Amino acid sequence: MSNIKIKLSVLDQSPVRKGVTARRAIEETTILAQEAEKLGYHRFWVSEHHNTTSLAGSTPEVLIAHLANHTKTLRIGSGGIMLPNHSALKVAESFRLLEVMHPNRIDLGMGRAPGTDRITASMLNPSNTWSEQDFVEQLRELHHYLHDTSDGGIQAKIKAIPISETVPQQWLLSSSGQSALFSAHFGMGFSFAHFINPVGGAQAVQYYREHFKPSLDLAAPVENVALHIFCSEDEEKVKQQEALMSYRFLQLAKGKGLPAVGWDDIKNVSYTGAELEQIKANKQRMIYGTPTVIKEQLTQLAADYDVDELMAVTITEHFEDRIRSYELLADIFK
Protein backbone atom coordinates (compact mmCIF):
# COMPACT_ATOMS: atom_id res chain seq x y z
CA MET A 1 0.00 0.00 0.00
CA SER A 2 2.86 2.39 0.76
CA ASN A 3 3.77 2.47 -2.95
CA ILE A 4 0.25 3.29 -4.12
CA LYS A 5 -0.46 6.92 -4.96
CA ILE A 6 -3.40 8.19 -2.95
CA LYS A 7 -6.13 9.92 -4.96
CA LEU A 8 -7.94 12.76 -3.23
CA SER A 9 -11.60 13.65 -3.61
CA VAL A 10 -14.06 16.01 -1.93
CA LEU A 11 -17.36 15.38 -0.19
CA ASP A 12 -18.92 18.80 0.37
CA GLN A 13 -22.03 19.46 2.46
CA SER A 14 -22.40 23.16 1.59
CA PRO A 15 -22.12 24.29 5.22
CA VAL A 16 -23.86 27.56 6.08
CA ARG A 17 -21.28 29.30 8.23
CA LYS A 18 -22.15 31.70 11.03
CA GLY A 19 -23.21 35.05 9.62
CA VAL A 20 -23.59 33.94 5.99
CA THR A 21 -26.57 32.98 3.86
CA ALA A 22 -27.40 29.74 2.09
CA ARG A 23 -26.70 31.54 -1.19
CA ARG A 24 -23.19 32.27 -0.02
CA ALA A 25 -22.78 28.64 1.08
CA ILE A 26 -23.57 27.48 -2.46
CA GLU A 27 -21.20 30.08 -3.88
CA GLU A 28 -18.47 28.68 -1.62
CA THR A 29 -19.20 25.13 -2.77
CA THR A 30 -18.87 26.33 -6.37
CA ILE A 31 -15.57 28.10 -5.69
CA LEU A 32 -14.32 25.00 -3.87
CA ALA A 33 -15.21 22.73 -6.81
CA GLN A 34 -13.29 25.00 -9.18
CA GLU A 35 -10.29 25.04 -6.85
CA ALA A 36 -10.47 21.26 -6.44
CA GLU A 37 -10.31 20.87 -10.21
CA LYS A 38 -7.24 23.14 -10.41
CA LEU A 39 -5.58 21.23 -7.57
CA GLY A 40 -6.07 17.86 -9.28
CA TYR A 41 -8.76 16.31 -7.08
CA HIS A 42 -10.36 13.21 -8.57
CA ARG A 43 -14.06 13.73 -7.86
CA PHE A 44 -16.36 16.18 -6.06
CA TRP A 45 -19.53 14.91 -4.37
CA VAL A 46 -22.34 16.89 -2.76
CA SER A 47 -24.74 15.64 -0.12
CA GLU A 48 -28.48 15.48 0.50
CA HIS A 49 -29.71 16.86 3.83
CA HIS A 50 -33.14 18.09 4.88
CA ASN A 51 -34.64 20.17 7.68
CA THR A 52 -31.31 21.59 8.82
CA THR A 53 -30.48 25.25 8.28
CA SER A 54 -26.72 24.70 8.72
CA LEU A 55 -26.33 22.65 5.51
CA ALA A 56 -27.58 24.12 2.23
CA GLY A 57 -27.38 21.00 0.03
CA SER A 58 -30.89 19.54 -0.11
CA THR A 59 -31.09 18.59 -3.81
CA PRO A 60 -27.80 17.17 -5.13
CA GLU A 61 -29.05 16.69 -8.68
CA VAL A 62 -29.66 20.44 -9.02
CA LEU A 63 -26.33 21.38 -7.47
CA ILE A 64 -24.48 18.80 -9.58
CA ALA A 65 -25.79 20.43 -12.77
CA HIS A 66 -24.59 23.81 -11.55
CA LEU A 67 -21.16 22.54 -10.51
CA ALA A 68 -20.62 20.57 -13.71
CA ASN A 69 -21.37 23.74 -15.67
CA HIS A 70 -18.73 25.60 -13.67
CA THR A 71 -16.01 22.96 -14.07
CA LYS A 72 -14.57 21.12 -17.07
CA THR A 73 -12.91 17.82 -16.15
CA LEU A 74 -13.69 17.09 -12.49
CA ARG A 75 -16.05 14.18 -11.82
CA ILE A 76 -19.15 15.59 -10.11
CA GLY A 77 -21.63 13.48 -8.19
CA SER A 78 -23.87 12.83 -5.24
CA GLY A 79 -22.63 11.71 -1.88
CA GLY A 80 -25.33 10.84 -1.87
CA ILE A 81 -28.85 10.67 -3.17
CA MET A 82 -30.86 9.21 -0.30
CA LEU A 83 -32.70 6.68 -2.42
CA PRO A 84 -35.68 5.94 -0.11
CA ASN A 85 -36.67 9.62 -0.39
CA HIS A 86 -37.22 9.23 -4.15
CA SER A 87 -38.60 6.91 -6.79
CA ALA A 88 -36.06 4.92 -8.79
CA LEU A 89 -37.50 6.35 -12.03
CA LYS A 90 -37.07 9.94 -10.88
CA VAL A 91 -33.45 9.31 -9.86
CA ALA A 92 -32.75 7.55 -13.17
CA GLU A 93 -34.18 10.43 -15.20
CA SER A 94 -32.37 13.10 -13.19
CA PHE A 95 -29.02 11.39 -13.57
CA ARG A 96 -29.58 10.39 -17.18
CA LEU A 97 -30.14 14.06 -17.99
CA LEU A 98 -26.98 14.99 -16.09
CA GLU A 99 -25.07 12.30 -17.98
CA VAL A 100 -26.40 13.55 -21.33
CA MET A 101 -25.24 17.07 -20.47
CA HIS A 102 -21.88 15.98 -19.05
CA PRO A 103 -20.93 12.53 -20.43
CA ASN A 104 -18.56 10.39 -18.39
CA ARG A 105 -18.31 12.96 -15.61
CA ILE A 106 -21.28 12.10 -13.39
CA ASP A 107 -21.28 9.90 -10.28
CA LEU A 108 -24.52 8.63 -8.78
CA GLY A 109 -23.72 7.90 -5.15
CA MET A 110 -26.68 6.57 -3.16
CA GLY A 111 -27.49 5.86 0.45
CA ARG A 112 -30.20 4.18 2.52
CA ALA A 113 -30.35 6.81 5.26
CA PRO A 114 -32.90 9.64 4.87
CA GLY A 115 -30.44 12.48 5.42
CA THR A 116 -32.81 13.90 7.99
CA ASP A 117 -35.12 12.95 10.86
CA ARG A 118 -37.84 10.33 10.43
CA ILE A 119 -40.70 12.86 10.45
CA THR A 120 -39.17 14.91 7.63
CA ALA A 121 -38.35 11.73 5.73
CA SER A 122 -41.98 10.63 5.96
CA MET A 123 -43.02 13.95 4.41
CA LEU A 124 -40.47 13.60 1.60
CA ASN A 125 -41.82 10.16 0.77
CA PRO A 126 -45.02 9.22 2.63
CA SER A 127 -44.85 5.67 1.22
CA ASN A 128 -41.39 5.02 2.64
CA THR A 129 -41.49 1.77 4.64
CA TRP A 130 -37.80 1.72 5.67
CA SER A 131 -37.75 -1.82 4.30
CA GLU A 132 -34.47 -3.37 3.26
CA GLN A 133 -36.28 -5.30 0.55
CA ASP A 134 -37.76 -2.08 -0.85
CA PHE A 135 -34.26 -0.61 -1.07
CA VAL A 136 -33.00 -3.66 -2.95
CA GLU A 137 -35.97 -3.42 -5.30
CA GLN A 138 -35.18 0.26 -5.95
CA LEU A 139 -31.61 -0.65 -6.85
CA ARG A 140 -32.86 -3.33 -9.23
CA GLU A 141 -35.33 -0.93 -10.87
CA LEU A 142 -32.67 1.75 -11.17
CA HIS A 143 -30.37 -0.68 -12.98
CA HIS A 144 -33.08 -1.49 -15.51
CA TYR A 145 -33.98 2.17 -16.07
CA LEU A 146 -30.35 3.16 -16.63
CA HIS A 147 -29.74 0.30 -19.07
CA ASP A 148 -33.12 0.08 -20.82
CA THR A 149 -33.57 -3.52 -19.70
CA SER A 150 -36.34 -5.23 -17.79
CA ASP A 151 -37.21 -8.36 -15.85
CA GLY A 152 -40.88 -7.99 -16.76
CA GLY A 153 -43.80 -6.31 -15.04
CA ILE A 154 -45.01 -2.75 -15.38
CA GLN A 155 -41.47 -1.40 -15.37
CA ALA A 156 -40.94 -2.96 -18.81
CA LYS A 157 -43.36 -0.38 -20.31
CA ILE A 158 -41.42 2.62 -19.01
CA LYS A 159 -38.32 4.33 -20.38
CA ALA A 160 -36.20 6.69 -18.29
CA ILE A 161 -35.89 9.85 -20.36
CA PRO A 162 -33.66 11.08 -21.91
CA ILE A 163 -32.00 8.07 -23.50
CA SER A 164 -28.31 8.32 -22.77
CA GLU A 165 -25.35 6.78 -24.58
CA THR A 166 -23.39 6.59 -21.32
CA VAL A 167 -24.30 5.66 -17.76
CA PRO A 168 -23.38 7.56 -14.58
CA GLN A 169 -20.97 5.67 -12.35
CA GLN A 170 -23.00 4.17 -9.50
CA TRP A 171 -21.86 3.95 -5.89
CA LEU A 172 -23.42 2.88 -2.64
CA LEU A 173 -22.55 4.83 0.48
CA SER A 174 -22.50 3.14 3.85
CA SER A 175 -21.59 3.71 7.48
CA SER A 176 -22.05 0.02 8.25
CA GLY A 177 -21.27 -3.25 6.53
CA GLN A 178 -24.78 -3.86 5.22
CA SER A 179 -24.56 -1.86 2.01
CA ALA A 180 -21.24 -3.56 1.23
CA LEU A 181 -23.30 -6.64 0.38
CA PHE A 182 -25.63 -4.66 -1.90
CA SER A 183 -22.71 -2.88 -3.61
CA ALA A 184 -20.97 -6.17 -4.26
CA HIS A 185 -24.13 -7.90 -5.50
CA PHE A 186 -25.09 -5.14 -7.96
CA GLY A 187 -21.52 -4.46 -9.09
CA MET A 188 -21.40 -0.85 -7.90
CA GLY A 189 -18.66 1.23 -6.31
CA PHE A 190 -18.54 1.28 -2.51
CA SER A 191 -17.85 4.34 -0.36
CA PHE A 192 -17.47 3.93 3.39
CA ALA A 193 -18.48 6.90 5.57
CA HIS A 194 -15.72 6.86 8.18
CA PHE A 195 -16.82 10.41 9.04
CA ILE A 196 -20.04 8.92 10.40
CA ASN A 197 -18.79 5.62 11.82
CA PRO A 198 -15.07 4.97 12.32
CA VAL A 199 -15.61 1.34 13.36
CA GLY A 200 -15.74 -1.68 11.05
CA GLY A 201 -15.03 0.14 7.82
CA ALA A 202 -11.97 -1.85 6.78
CA GLN A 203 -13.91 -5.09 7.24
CA ALA A 204 -16.82 -3.74 5.19
CA VAL A 205 -14.49 -2.76 2.34
CA GLN A 206 -12.82 -6.17 2.44
CA TYR A 207 -16.20 -7.94 2.37
CA TYR A 208 -17.27 -5.83 -0.62
CA ARG A 209 -14.06 -6.60 -2.49
CA GLU A 210 -14.23 -10.34 -1.83
CA HIS A 211 -17.90 -10.68 -2.85
CA PHE A 212 -17.95 -8.24 -5.79
CA LYS A 213 -19.81 -9.42 -8.89
CA PRO A 214 -18.82 -7.71 -12.18
CA SER A 215 -21.66 -5.73 -13.75
CA LEU A 216 -22.41 -3.95 -17.01
CA ASP A 217 -20.93 -0.82 -15.44
CA LEU A 218 -18.00 -2.10 -13.42
CA ALA A 219 -15.63 -4.96 -14.17
CA ALA A 220 -13.74 -4.79 -10.88
CA PRO A 221 -14.43 -3.33 -7.42
CA VAL A 222 -13.72 0.33 -6.70
CA GLU A 223 -13.89 1.83 -3.25
CA ASN A 224 -13.10 4.95 -1.28
CA VAL A 225 -13.30 6.22 2.28
CA ALA A 226 -14.71 9.59 3.39
CA LEU A 227 -13.66 11.30 6.62
CA HIS A 228 -13.44 14.70 8.25
CA ILE A 229 -10.07 16.28 7.40
CA PHE A 230 -8.58 19.63 8.29
CA CYS A 231 -5.01 20.68 7.55
CA SER A 232 -3.26 23.89 8.60
CA GLU A 233 0.30 25.02 9.22
CA ASP A 234 -1.03 26.81 12.33
CA GLU A 235 -1.29 24.35 15.25
CA GLU A 236 -3.55 26.68 17.23
CA LYS A 237 -5.97 26.87 14.29
CA VAL A 238 -5.98 23.06 14.14
CA LYS A 239 -6.92 22.88 17.83
CA GLN A 240 -9.70 25.43 17.41
CA GLN A 241 -11.23 23.71 14.37
CA GLU A 242 -11.06 20.35 16.11
CA ALA A 243 -12.83 21.81 19.15
CA LEU A 244 -15.51 23.34 16.92
CA MET A 245 -16.14 20.03 15.15
CA SER A 246 -16.26 18.18 18.47
CA TYR A 247 -18.87 20.64 19.72
CA ARG A 248 -20.94 20.19 16.55
CA PHE A 249 -20.83 16.41 16.86
CA LEU A 250 -22.22 16.63 20.40
CA GLN A 251 -25.04 18.91 19.26
CA LEU A 252 -25.82 16.57 16.38
CA ALA A 253 -26.11 13.66 18.82
CA LYS A 254 -28.60 15.74 20.82
CA GLY A 255 -30.75 16.29 17.73
CA LYS A 256 -29.66 19.90 17.30
CA GLY A 257 -27.95 19.51 13.94
CA LEU A 258 -24.51 20.92 13.12
CA PRO A 259 -24.84 24.49 14.45
CA ALA A 260 -23.02 27.34 12.73
CA VAL A 261 -20.79 28.47 15.57
CA GLY A 262 -17.44 30.20 15.86
CA TRP A 263 -14.50 29.73 18.19
CA ASP A 264 -15.59 32.61 20.43
CA ASP A 265 -18.96 30.88 20.93
CA ILE A 266 -17.53 27.64 22.29
CA LYS A 267 -14.06 28.37 23.68
CA ASN A 268 -15.32 28.54 27.26
CA VAL A 269 -17.81 25.67 27.07
CA SER A 270 -17.31 23.01 29.73
CA TYR A 271 -18.27 19.36 29.23
CA THR A 272 -19.46 16.56 31.46
CA GLY A 273 -17.43 13.40 31.86
CA ALA A 274 -19.76 11.55 29.50
CA GLU A 275 -19.45 14.30 26.90
CA LEU A 276 -15.66 14.20 27.12
CA GLU A 277 -15.78 10.47 26.47
CA GLN A 278 -17.99 11.10 23.46
CA ILE A 279 -15.60 13.77 22.19
CA LYS A 280 -12.74 11.30 22.49
CA ALA A 281 -14.70 8.69 20.52
CA ASN A 282 -15.70 11.21 17.85
CA LYS A 283 -12.08 12.16 17.19
CA GLN A 284 -11.74 8.80 15.43
CA ARG A 285 -14.02 10.22 12.73
CA MET A 286 -11.59 12.99 11.81
CA ILE A 287 -7.94 13.62 11.09
CA TYR A 288 -6.91 17.17 11.87
CA GLY A 289 -3.34 18.40 11.95
CA THR A 290 -0.36 20.05 10.35
CA PRO A 291 0.83 18.77 6.94
CA THR A 292 3.36 16.33 8.40
CA VAL A 293 0.87 14.86 10.86
CA ILE A 294 -1.88 14.68 8.26
CA LYS A 295 0.24 12.87 5.70
CA GLU A 296 1.33 10.18 8.13
CA GLN A 297 -2.15 9.57 9.53
CA LEU A 298 -3.97 9.59 6.19
CA THR A 299 -1.40 7.27 4.65
CA GLN A 300 -1.93 4.87 7.55
CA LEU A 301 -5.72 5.10 7.25
CA ALA A 302 -5.54 4.32 3.51
CA ALA A 303 -3.31 1.35 4.31
CA ASP A 304 -5.69 0.11 7.02
CA TYR A 305 -8.58 0.21 4.54
CA ASP A 306 -6.38 -0.90 1.63
CA VAL A 307 -7.85 1.83 -0.61
CA ASP A 308 -6.21 4.37 -2.89
CA GLU A 309 -8.88 7.09 -2.70
CA LEU A 310 -9.77 9.29 0.26
CA MET A 311 -12.63 11.80 0.31
CA ALA A 312 -12.20 14.86 2.50
CA VAL A 313 -15.13 16.43 4.35
CA THR A 314 -14.03 19.82 5.65
CA ILE A 315 -16.13 22.32 7.63
CA THR A 316 -14.42 25.43 9.00
CA GLU A 317 -15.37 28.68 10.68
CA HIS A 318 -13.77 30.72 7.89
CA PHE A 319 -13.98 29.83 4.21
CA GLU A 320 -10.35 30.71 3.51
CA ASP A 321 -9.29 28.04 6.00
CA ARG A 322 -11.40 25.47 4.15
CA ILE A 323 -9.74 26.37 0.84
CA ARG A 324 -6.28 26.40 2.38
CA SER A 325 -6.82 22.97 3.92
CA TYR A 326 -7.59 21.50 0.50
CA GLU A 327 -4.55 23.25 -0.99
CA LEU A 328 -2.23 21.81 1.65
CA LEU A 329 -3.79 18.36 1.29
CA ALA A 330 -3.24 18.39 -2.47
CA ASP A 331 0.34 19.52 -2.00
CA ILE A 332 1.04 16.70 0.49
CA PHE A 333 -0.05 13.96 -1.92
CA LYS A 334 1.32 15.33 -5.20
Rank of each mutant, 00 (worst) to 15 (best):
L8V: 07
I26G: 08
I26S: 06
T30Y: 05
E35P: 09
A36C: 12
F44R: 15
S54D: 13
S58N: 11
L63M: 10
A65P: 08
H66N: 05
H66V: 04
T73R: 15
L74N: 14
G77E: 11
G80A: 11
I81W: 04
I81F: 06
P84M: 08
S87V: 12
L89R: 15
V91C: 05
F95L: 11
L97M: 12
L98P: 02
R105G: 05
I106E: 03
D107K: 10
M110A: 06
M110N: 04
A113N: 12
A113M: 07
R118S: 09
M123T: 08
S127A: 05
N128I: 00
N128T: 03
W130T: 07
F135T: 06
E141D: 13
H144M: 10
Q155H: 08
K157T: 01
I158E: 13
P162H: 15
Q178L: 08
L181W: 02
F182R: 06
F182Q: 10
H185Q: 14
G189F: 01
F190R: 00
F190W: 05
A193T: 03
H194M: 01
I196S: 14
G201A: 03
A204M: 04
Q206M: 07
R209A: 04
L218I: 05
L218C: 07
P221V: 12
A226W: 00
L227Q: 03
E233I: 10
E235A: 04
E235L: 02
Q241W: 05
Y247E: 12
L258M: 11
A260T: 13
I266Q: 05
I266G: 02
T272E: 14
I279Y: 02
M286W: 03
I287K: 07
T292V: 09
V293M: 08
V293K: 13
K295P: 01
Q297G: 02
L298Q: 07
T299R: 03
Q300F: 04
D304C: 06
E309F: 00
H318F: 07
E320F: 00
A330Q: 11
D331M: 07
